[in-house]
Protein backbone atom coordinates (compact mmCIF):
# COMPACT_ATOMS: atom_id res chain seq x y z
CA UNK A 1 0.00 0.00 0.00
CA UNK A 2 2.76 2.43 0.99
CA UNK A 3 4.69 1.57 -2.15
CA UNK A 4 1.60 2.25 -4.21
CA UNK A 5 1.05 5.64 -2.58
CA UNK A 6 4.69 6.58 -3.07
CA UNK A 7 4.52 5.50 -6.69
CA UNK A 8 1.44 7.61 -7.37
CA UNK A 9 2.93 10.59 -5.59
CA UNK A 10 6.16 10.40 -7.59
CA UNK A 11 4.30 9.96 -10.87
CA UNK A 12 2.35 13.16 -10.32
CA UNK A 13 5.47 15.32 -9.89
CA UNK A 14 6.43 15.49 -13.60
CA UNK A 15 2.80 16.11 -14.48
CA UNK A 16 2.64 18.97 -12.00
CA UNK A 17 5.80 20.42 -13.53
CA UNK A 18 4.30 20.22 -17.03
CA UNK A 19 1.09 21.79 -15.75
CA UNK A 20 3.02 24.82 -14.52
CA UNK A 21 4.81 24.96 -17.87
CA UNK A 22 1.51 24.93 -19.77
CA UNK A 23 0.13 27.69 -17.54
CA UNK A 24 3.20 29.77 -18.28
CA UNK A 25 2.94 28.96 -21.99
CA UNK A 26 -0.59 30.37 -22.18
CA UNK A 27 0.81 33.89 -21.90
CA UNK A 28 3.16 33.24 -24.79
CA UNK A 29 0.13 32.48 -26.99
CA UNK A 30 -1.06 36.07 -26.79
CA UNK A 31 -0.58 37.45 -30.30
CA UNK A 32 1.00 40.82 -30.96
CA UNK A 33 1.99 42.98 -28.02
CA UNK A 34 0.19 41.72 -24.93
CA UNK A 35 1.01 44.92 -23.09
CA UNK A 36 -1.08 46.99 -25.53
CA UNK A 37 -3.91 44.47 -25.41
CA UNK A 38 -3.94 44.47 -21.64
CA UNK A 39 -3.57 48.17 -21.13
CA UNK A 40 -6.27 48.88 -23.69
CA UNK A 41 -6.21 50.74 -26.99
CA UNK A 42 -6.78 54.12 -25.34
CA UNK A 43 -3.81 53.70 -23.04
CA UNK A 44 -0.96 56.16 -23.29
CA UNK A 45 2.49 54.80 -24.18
CA UNK A 46 3.51 55.37 -20.56
CA UNK A 47 0.68 53.18 -19.28
CA UNK A 48 1.55 50.45 -21.77
CA UNK A 49 5.15 50.62 -20.64
CA UNK A 50 4.09 50.35 -17.00
CA UNK A 51 2.01 47.19 -17.75
CA UNK A 52 4.90 45.75 -19.73
CA UNK A 53 7.25 46.21 -16.80
CA UNK A 54 4.72 45.00 -14.25
CA UNK A 55 4.23 41.71 -16.12
CA UNK A 56 7.92 41.41 -16.93
CA UNK A 57 7.10 41.40 -20.63
CA UNK A 58 10.16 43.53 -21.33
CA UNK A 59 12.38 40.64 -20.24
CA UNK A 60 13.68 37.90 -22.58
CA UNK A 61 11.85 34.56 -22.62
CA UNK A 62 14.18 32.60 -20.36
CA UNK A 63 14.18 35.35 -17.75
CA UNK A 64 10.36 35.37 -17.76
CA UNK A 65 10.30 31.59 -17.34
CA UNK A 66 12.85 31.72 -14.55
CA UNK A 67 11.00 34.43 -12.73
CA UNK A 68 7.68 32.50 -13.16
CA UNK A 69 9.19 29.56 -11.31
CA UNK A 70 10.93 31.73 -8.74
CA UNK A 71 7.58 33.29 -7.87
CA UNK A 72 5.75 29.98 -7.95
CA UNK A 73 8.13 28.43 -5.45
CA UNK A 74 7.29 31.26 -3.09
CA UNK A 75 3.58 30.59 -3.61
CA UNK A 76 3.25 33.78 -5.63
CA UNK A 77 0.83 33.49 -8.55
CA UNK A 78 1.22 37.15 -9.51
CA UNK A 79 -0.94 40.21 -9.07
CA UNK A 80 -4.35 40.83 -10.56
CA UNK A 81 -4.24 43.70 -13.05
CA UNK A 82 -7.76 44.79 -12.20
CA UNK A 83 -8.00 44.18 -8.50
CA UNK A 84 -4.39 45.05 -7.81
CA UNK A 85 -4.28 42.21 -5.32
CA UNK A 86 -2.33 39.00 -4.94
CA UNK A 87 -3.94 36.36 -7.18
CA UNK A 88 -3.54 33.56 -4.64
CA UNK A 89 -5.21 35.65 -1.93
CA UNK A 90 -8.17 36.37 -4.17
CA UNK A 91 -8.48 32.68 -5.07
CA UNK A 92 -8.22 31.47 -1.49
CA UNK A 93 -10.80 34.01 -0.41
CA UNK A 94 -13.25 32.65 -2.97
CA UNK A 95 -12.35 28.98 -2.49
CA UNK A 96 -14.89 28.16 0.27
CA UNK A 97 -17.70 29.49 -1.91
CA UNK A 98 -16.79 27.36 -4.93
CA UNK A 99 -15.95 24.42 -2.72
CA UNK A 100 -19.34 24.45 -0.98
CA UNK A 101 -21.22 24.51 -4.27
CA UNK A 102 -19.01 21.89 -5.90
CA UNK A 103 -19.33 19.60 -2.89
CA UNK A 104 -23.10 19.98 -2.93
CA UNK A 105 -23.12 19.09 -6.63
CA UNK A 106 -20.77 16.16 -6.04
CA UNK A 107 -22.97 14.75 -3.28
CA UNK A 108 -26.00 15.08 -5.58
CA UNK A 109 -24.09 13.43 -8.42
CA UNK A 110 -22.96 10.44 -6.41
CA UNK A 111 -26.19 9.93 -4.46
CA UNK A 112 -28.56 10.29 -7.38
CA UNK A 113 -26.32 8.94 -10.16
CA UNK A 114 -25.27 5.84 -8.25
CA UNK A 115 -28.74 5.05 -6.98
CA UNK A 116 -30.41 5.58 -10.36
CA UNK A 117 -27.79 3.48 -12.14
CA UNK A 118 -28.16 0.58 -9.72
CA UNK A 119 -31.95 0.63 -9.82
CA UNK A 120 -31.91 0.76 -13.62
CA UNK A 121 -29.54 -2.22 -13.81
CA UNK A 122 -31.56 -4.31 -11.38
CA UNK A 123 -34.73 -3.62 -13.37
CA UNK A 124 -33.09 -3.91 -16.76
CA UNK A 125 -35.38 -3.01 -19.68
CA UNK A 126 -38.25 -2.10 -17.35
CA UNK A 127 -40.11 1.19 -17.50
CA UNK A 128 -38.00 2.53 -14.61
CA UNK A 129 -34.85 1.59 -16.48
CA UNK A 130 -35.95 3.35 -19.62
CA UNK A 131 -37.01 6.42 -17.71
CA UNK A 132 -33.71 6.63 -15.82
CA UNK A 133 -31.69 6.14 -18.97
CA UNK A 134 -33.66 8.77 -20.87
CA UNK A 135 -33.15 11.32 -18.13
CA UNK A 136 -29.47 10.36 -17.91
CA UNK A 137 -29.06 10.80 -21.65
CA UNK A 138 -30.71 14.22 -21.48
CA UNK A 139 -28.42 15.03 -18.58
CA UNK A 140 -25.31 14.44 -20.67
CA UNK A 141 -26.79 16.24 -23.68
CA UNK A 142 -28.37 19.39 -22.27
CA UNK A 143 -26.00 22.36 -22.07
CA UNK A 144 -25.67 23.15 -18.36
CA UNK A 145 -25.72 26.94 -18.74
CA UNK A 146 -28.96 26.72 -20.71
CA UNK A 147 -30.42 24.30 -18.19
CA UNK A 148 -29.49 26.76 -15.44
CA UNK A 149 -31.38 29.55 -17.20
CA UNK A 150 -34.43 27.32 -17.66
CA UNK A 151 -34.36 26.33 -14.00
CA UNK A 152 -34.21 29.99 -13.05
CA UNK A 153 -37.23 30.75 -15.22
CA UNK A 154 -39.17 27.88 -13.69
CA UNK A 155 -38.18 27.88 -10.01
CA UNK A 156 -37.21 31.50 -9.43
CA UNK A 157 -39.29 33.53 -11.88
CA UNK A 158 -42.46 31.44 -12.24
CA UNK A 159 -42.74 29.57 -8.94
CA UNK A 160 -40.64 31.87 -6.81
CA UNK A 161 -39.41 29.00 -4.66
CA UNK A 162 -35.70 29.67 -4.88
CA UNK A 163 -33.57 32.77 -5.46
CA UNK A 164 -32.44 33.40 -9.02
CA UNK A 165 -28.92 34.27 -7.96
CA UNK A 166 -26.65 35.51 -5.22
CA UNK A 167 -24.89 33.59 -2.53
CA UNK A 168 -25.39 33.20 1.20
CA UNK A 169 -22.39 32.08 3.25
CA UNK A 170 -23.05 28.68 4.84
CA UNK A 171 -21.22 29.73 8.00
CA UNK A 172 -23.76 32.50 8.57
CA UNK A 173 -27.02 30.97 7.47
CA UNK A 174 -27.11 27.31 6.47
CA UNK A 175 -30.69 27.29 5.17
CA UNK A 176 -30.08 30.47 3.24
CA UNK A 177 -27.02 28.83 1.76
CA UNK A 178 -29.02 25.74 0.83
CA UNK A 179 -31.64 27.85 -0.91
CA UNK A 180 -29.06 29.88 -2.81
CA UNK A 181 -26.91 26.88 -3.71
CA UNK A 182 -29.59 24.44 -4.84
CA UNK A 183 -30.24 25.69 -8.37
CA UNK A 184 -26.52 26.15 -9.13
CA UNK A 185 -25.68 22.73 -7.70
CA UNK A 186 -28.45 21.00 -9.63
CA UNK A 187 -27.50 22.64 -12.93
CA UNK A 188 -23.88 21.83 -12.23
CA UNK A 189 -24.61 18.20 -11.33
CA UNK A 190 -26.93 17.22 -14.22
CA UNK A 191 -24.16 16.26 -16.62
CA UNK A 192 -22.21 14.21 -14.09
CA UNK A 193 -25.36 12.59 -12.70
CA UNK A 194 -26.23 11.34 -16.17
CA UNK A 195 -22.69 10.19 -16.76
CA UNK A 196 -22.49 8.36 -13.46
CA UNK A 197 -25.91 6.74 -13.84
CA UNK A 198 -24.94 5.42 -17.25
CA UNK A 199 -21.58 4.10 -16.07
CA UNK A 200 -23.05 2.60 -12.91
CA UNK A 201 -25.78 0.83 -14.83
CA UNK A 202 -23.48 -0.73 -17.40
CA UNK A 203 -20.94 -1.72 -14.74
CA UNK A 204 -23.65 -3.25 -12.59
CA UNK A 205 -24.99 -5.26 -15.51
CA UNK A 206 -21.45 -6.44 -16.23
CA UNK A 207 -20.82 -7.38 -12.60
CA UNK A 208 -24.14 -9.20 -12.26
CA UNK A 209 -23.04 -11.52 -15.07
CA UNK A 210 -19.82 -12.49 -13.30
CA UNK A 211 -19.15 -15.99 -12.04
CA UNK A 212 -18.66 -14.83 -8.46
CA UNK A 213 -22.21 -13.50 -8.38
CA UNK A 214 -23.41 -16.96 -9.39
CA UNK A 215 -21.23 -18.40 -6.62
CA UNK A 216 -22.76 -16.01 -4.10
CA UNK A 217 -26.22 -17.12 -5.16
CA UNK A 218 -25.21 -20.79 -5.12
CA UNK A 219 -24.12 -20.33 -1.51
CA UNK A 220 -27.69 -19.45 -0.63
CA UNK A 221 -27.06 -15.77 0.09
CA UNK A 222 -30.19 -13.59 -0.12
CA UNK A 223 -30.47 -11.02 -2.92
CA UNK A 224 -29.81 -8.28 -0.38
CA UNK A 225 -26.28 -9.59 0.17
CA UNK A 226 -25.66 -10.73 -3.40
CA UNK A 227 -26.34 -7.22 -4.71
CA UNK A 228 -25.61 -5.04 -1.70
CA UNK A 229 -22.34 -6.73 -0.81
CA UNK A 230 -20.87 -8.86 -3.59
CA UNK A 231 -21.98 -6.76 -6.55
CA UNK A 232 -21.81 -3.31 -4.99
CA UNK A 233 -18.20 -3.43 -3.91
CA UNK A 234 -17.15 -4.48 -7.40
CA UNK A 235 -19.30 -1.79 -8.99
CA UNK A 236 -17.70 0.85 -6.80
CA UNK A 237 -14.24 0.20 -8.26
CA UNK A 238 -14.85 1.60 -11.76
CA UNK A 239 -17.25 4.17 -10.36
CA UNK A 240 -14.56 5.54 -8.07
CA UNK A 241 -12.17 5.89 -10.99
CA UNK A 242 -14.54 8.28 -12.74
CA UNK A 243 -14.80 10.50 -9.66
CA UNK A 244 -11.71 12.37 -10.85
CA UNK A 245 -13.36 13.04 -14.20
CA UNK A 246 -16.58 13.98 -12.46
CA UNK A 247 -14.78 16.56 -10.30
CA UNK A 248 -13.00 17.90 -13.35
CA UNK A 249 -16.32 18.37 -15.13
CA UNK A 250 -17.77 20.08 -12.06
CA UNK A 251 -14.94 22.59 -12.05
CA UNK A 252 -15.36 23.09 -15.78
CA UNK A 253 -19.01 23.86 -15.32
CA UNK A 254 -18.46 26.21 -12.41
CA UNK A 255 -17.28 29.08 -14.66
CA UNK A 256 -20.61 29.49 -16.45
CA UNK A 257 -22.81 28.43 -13.58
CA UNK A 258 -21.21 30.78 -11.06
CA UNK A 259 -21.40 33.56 -13.63
CA UNK A 260 -25.09 32.95 -14.27
CA UNK A 261 -26.01 32.81 -10.59
CA UNK A 262 -23.63 35.65 -9.57
CA UNK A 263 -21.84 33.44 -7.09
CA UNK A 264 -18.57 34.98 -5.91
CA UNK A 265 -16.46 31.87 -6.45
CA UNK A 266 -13.35 30.98 -8.47
CA UNK A 267 -15.43 30.18 -11.54
CA UNK A 268 -17.03 33.60 -11.77
CA UNK A 269 -13.65 35.17 -11.00
CA UNK A 270 -12.25 33.45 -14.09
CA UNK A 271 -15.36 34.29 -16.08
CA UNK A 272 -15.04 37.98 -15.38
CA UNK A 273 -11.26 38.02 -15.91
CA UNK A 274 -11.55 36.63 -19.43
CA UNK A 275 -13.12 39.62 -21.08
CA UNK A 276 -11.06 42.10 -19.11
CA UNK A 277 -7.88 40.28 -20.06
CA UNK A 278 -6.71 39.91 -16.49
CA UNK A 279 -4.11 37.34 -17.57
CA UNK A 280 -2.44 36.78 -14.19
CA UNK A 281 -5.78 35.76 -12.71
CA UNK A 282 -6.58 33.41 -15.61
CA UNK A 283 -3.12 31.92 -15.49
CA UNK A 284 -3.04 31.57 -11.72
CA UNK A 285 -6.62 30.33 -11.49
CA UNK A 286 -6.00 27.63 -14.10
CA UNK A 287 -2.85 26.49 -12.37
CA UNK A 288 -4.55 26.45 -9.00
CA UNK A 289 -7.48 24.39 -10.27
CA UNK A 290 -5.22 21.94 -12.12
CA UNK A 291 -3.06 21.44 -9.04
CA UNK A 292 -6.15 20.89 -6.94
CA UNK A 293 -7.38 18.29 -9.42
CA UNK A 294 -4.07 16.46 -9.25
CA UNK A 295 -4.48 16.20 -5.49
CA UNK A 296 -8.07 15.01 -5.88
CA UNK A 297 -7.01 12.39 -8.40
CA UNK A 298 -4.39 11.20 -5.95
CA UNK A 299 -7.11 10.79 -3.31
CA UNK A 300 -9.26 8.92 -5.84
CA UNK A 301 -6.36 6.57 -6.52
CA UNK A 302 -6.05 5.87 -2.82
CA UNK A 303 -9.76 5.17 -2.53
CA UNK A 304 -9.46 2.87 -5.51
CA UNK A 305 -6.60 0.96 -3.95
CA UNK A 306 -8.53 0.66 -0.72
CA UNK A 307 -11.46 -0.88 -2.58
CA UNK A 308 -9.50 -3.23 -4.80
CA UNK A 309 -7.11 -5.60 -3.04
CA UNK A 310 -5.46 -6.52 -6.34
CA UNK A 311 -4.11 -2.96 -6.59
CA UNK A 312 -3.37 -2.67 -2.91
CA UNK A 313 -0.98 -5.57 -3.00
CA UNK A 314 0.86 -4.35 -6.03
CA UNK A 315 -0.50 -6.87 -8.54
CA UNK A 316 -1.39 -5.46 -11.88
CA UNK A 317 -0.69 -1.84 -12.65
Amino acid sequence: MLRYVAHRLLASIPVLFLVTLISFGLMQLVPGDPAILIAGLQATPEEVERVRRQLGLDQPFHVQLFSWYAHLLRGDLGTSLLLGRDVLDVILERLPVSFSIALYALVLTVAVGLFAGIVAALRQNSLVDQLVMTVALLGVSLPNFWLALMLVVLFAVQLGWLPSGGYVDFREDFWGWLASATLPAVSLAMLQMGLLARITRSTMLEVLRQDYIRTARAKGLPARLVVGKHALKNVMIPVVTVLGIVTSLLLSGSVVIETIFSIPGIGSLLGSSILRRDYPVIQGGLLFVAAMLLVINLLVDLLYAWLDPRIRYGHGE
Binding site: P14, V15, L18, V19, L21, I22, S23, L26, M27, L29, V30, P31, S248, L249, L251, S252, G253, V255, V256, L270, S273, I274, R277, Y279, I282, Q283, G285, L286, V289, A290, L293, L294, N297
Partner: peptide
Amino acid sequence: MRIMDAFMAFPVILLAIGITAALG
Protein backbone atom coordinates in the same frame (compact mmCIF):
# COMPACT_ATOMS: atom_id res chain seq x y z
CA MET B 1 1.86 10.45 -22.27
CA ARG B 2 3.11 12.67 -19.44
CA ILE B 3 2.49 15.69 -21.65
CA MET B 4 -0.99 14.38 -22.45
CA ASP B 5 -1.59 13.82 -18.74
CA ALA B 6 -0.59 17.41 -18.02
CA PHE B 7 -3.05 18.73 -20.60
CA MET B 8 -5.72 16.48 -19.19
CA ALA B 9 -5.04 17.69 -15.67
CA PHE B 10 -6.89 20.90 -16.58
CA PRO B 11 -10.68 20.81 -16.66
CA VAL B 12 -11.71 20.88 -20.32
CA ILE B 13 -13.58 24.14 -20.42
CA LEU B 14 -11.09 25.94 -18.21
CA LEU B 15 -8.17 25.13 -20.48
CA ALA B 16 -10.19 26.03 -23.56
CA ILE B 17 -11.08 29.33 -21.87
CA GLY B 18 -7.44 29.94 -21.03
CA ILE B 19 -6.33 29.30 -24.61
CA THR B 20 -9.06 31.37 -26.27
CA ALA B 21 -8.57 34.13 -23.72
CA ALA B 22 -4.90 34.25 -24.72
CA LEU B 23 -5.40 33.88 -28.46
CA GLY B 24 -8.37 36.25 -28.45
